[in-house]
Amino acid sequence: MAITTGSRAASRTRRPLTLDSIVRGALVGLFVVLMVVFILGPLLWLGVRAFAGNWTFPNLLPDDWTLRWWQVVVNDGALGVAVQNSLFFAPLTVLVSAIICLPAAYAFARFDFPGRRFFLISLFATNAFPKMGLFVTLAALFYALNLMNSVLGILVVHVLGTVVFMTWIPAAAFAAVPRNLEEAARDAGASKLRVFASVTLPMALPGIIVAAVMSFLASFDEAQGTYLVGAPAFMTMPTQMYSLVLNYPTQVAAVFSILLAIPSVALMLVAHKHILGGQLAEGFQIK
């Protein structure tokens, strides 16, 4: 890798600076600047707002700075409850989803059984149907089963959103563990369980971590289904955002946004190496 980039850099310096290359460089530069504004602009614009007092229109920065809005959020009971609800549902969702899906992921990777392919694809049903439509259809059943405005109902909605992550990504990770490594451990006298615990699981762990992180975030960010099934009895942070935007000053919503983004960013930073490393992309190709 280092060698190839090195030689490329060398060949680049040898090439004379032509008008063509300058134009091309300028276009790439312009594209990068546009992308920075497009991607980061809205986030920075929102972030500044959380500390803003007054803000006169065409100015690019607020007139004065304040921490007042943070106090409003901390002192507001409803917002606190939403934070609690979110922190309750997200870990629970990951746990339930892992119990249901991880054995299946292993089975998909290691066993050949009738209907395997059909099963793998029918998991995709959760993603093949647009979410909002799915929740509307789910609502009829929830009314009949009395699951509307219940913890179990919300949990079902959240777990449904994680099934694809929790099955496909770990399945790809389990499948990537070389079988002969497991066989070697078996030959050395390790029991099946021992092989799984000390060879298979550690090697598949990055994939499982990515799946857990994606599931946590899916639950933490889930808004539409929770709103339809749980509101107003159970408000989580994202559903609280809906009413926040309408009923509070923009700065309060900005503060709340930052709070809501902290867990996502923290978890993503933990797992981003594996996500960029292809664990996510690998999981989405049915094999």
């Binding site: 249901i100 099963f119 959760t126 259809t137 059943l141």
Partner: peptide, 26 residues
């Protein structure tokens, strides 16, 4: 094969119950 089938079953049942069935119902 039986073990594999039964290990893979729980998420399928979950989806059948809360995606497939509601769609038919709706």
């Amino acid at each position: 094969r039986a073990v594999g089938f039964f290990m893979a079953l729980p998420p399928i049942l979950l989806i059948a119950l809360f995606v497939g069935f509601p769609i038919v119902l709706a």
